[in-house]
């Protein structure tokens, strides 16, 4: 095998190696766990508040 053939052979071997690496990386996509839709959450409780007010005026009976 002359020098030219050796160089070509080496390049082809490299091409095979890189192709195999590419194949492995591509296959890796199948194992990705990507969400198909956004996650959702629901509000299950809520509360509200109201005020009650009155004023007791002082009288001779309760002013002490």
């Amino acid at each position: 095998m002359d020098k030219y053939h050796k160089v070509v052979m080496a390049l082809l071997v490299l091409a095979i190696v890189f192709s195999i690496i590419s194949l492995i990386v591509s296959l890796g996509i199948f194992s990705l766990d990507l969400p198909k839709s956004a996650g959702t959450s629901a509000r299950v409780t809520d509360s509200g508040a109201a005020q009650v007010k009155f004023v007791v005026e002082p009288t001779s009976a309760n002013s002490g």
């Binding site: 509360s47 509200g48 009650v52 004023v55 007791v56």
Partner: peptide, 11 residues
């Protein structure tokens, strides 16, 4: 005598 206030909470 005085102001009387309270809060009612609905949950």
């Amino acid at each position: 005598p005085g102001a009387k206030t309270d809060t009612i909470t609905a949950t």
